[in-house]
């Protein structure tokens, strides 16, 4: 196996891909909730992705990513046998599970990819896991078999009702709480606005909430401060102090503002990704 070689590639839907990659040094210590930072090639930016799984014996890690912009679209052009230039990790704190008996994990859209290792990790650790997976429509639904195997109760909802129940994840969550489910913790993984509302519901019912924040990152080791977020009035670096934080302490409006900082450049890059000839640039 070559360094950071893609060993398998599976499209979960038009937009979301599951990769298994050789990265022994990362795999040996990986834990649920941790992430890596990768570069596609010498000209690539550094982007963070959660490890959807890992096999420390085989020395592999799993990534599930959505093609949303330049780098992830470039990743789509890589095939089995191609290699990433760089993968560093495991980064961030592993998800805390101590003392938990029953949790509800709420995943929105691509956030379900990030929620999967978390839900499965908790389930493997003997915690009772209810999982709400929410999508816009049936074409975007992913990972249902995996979630079924990795949770105790799985609920599927879509905005337009083309798969599962027609409702938002927040409504389902209210329903489950109203039905008497006694959660020790509610975990929200998805777009910031969805996490904000999910954590507000938890707060309303006096339940602890955990949100997995996706701030802009560069080094992922605490060196640049670019990922800083206001948590309970104090600046924390998401890459080393997180990515999981107590949802009631997060300054959501600031986070939402900050995570759109480069959107003009990204839009330009996205529109110009098609101009690249011959797939991912190689220079060796």
């Amino acid at each position: 196996m070559k360094r950071f070689e893609i060993l398998s590639k599976r499209m979960l839907n038009d937009n979301i891909t599951w990769l298994v990659i050789s990265a022994p040094l990362v795999a040996r210590k990986a834990k649920p909730g941790q992430f890596i930072i990768l570069r596609t090639d010498e000209y690539g930016e550094r982007i963070p992705l959660t490890m959807a799984g890992h096999d420390s014996k085989k020395g592999t890690i799993d990534l599930i990513y959505a093609a949303v912009g330049r780098t992830t679209m470039l990743m789509d052009q890589l095939e089995v046998g191609d290699c990433f230039a760089d993968i560093v990790g495991p980064l961030g704190k592993p998800t805390e599970m101590e003392g938990l008996k029953k949790v509800c994990v709420v995943g929105g859209g691509t956030g379900n990819a990030l929620a999967y290792p978390l839900a499965k990790g908790m389930h493997d650790a003997g915690i009772e896991v209810d999982m709400i997976t929410g999508f816009k429509n049936k074409d975007l639904v992913i990972l249902q078999d995996e979630f079924k195997a990795g949770t105790d109760n799985l609920y599927l909802v879509t905005d337009d009702g083309t798969a599962g129940e027609k409702m938002f994840t927040t409504v389902k969550l209210e329903e489950l709480i109203a039905a008497g489910n006694d959660y020790d913790e509610i975990v929200a993984v998805g777009p910031p606005i969805m996490m904000k509302f999910t954590c507000e519901i938890a707060q309303k019912h006096g339940i602890k909430s955990i949100a997995s924040l996706t701030a802009y990152m560069i080094d992922g080791t605490g060196m640049c401060g670019g990922c800083r977020c206001n948590i309970g009035g104090e600046d924390k670096f998401v890459c080393v102090d997180g990515p999981d934080f107590d949802g009631s302490l997060v300054d959501w409006d600031e986070l939402i503002q900050r995570s759109a900082y480069y959107s003009d450049q990204e839009k330009y890059d996205r529109e110009h990704v098609c101009r690249l000839t011959g797939g991912v640039r190689y220079n060796d």
Binding site: L25, V26, R28, K29, D86, I87, V88, G89, P90, L91, T221
Partner: peptide, 8 residues
Amino acid sequence: DAIVGRAI
């Protein structure tokens, strides 16, 4: 890409 204290 080898972060000592995390990877090893």
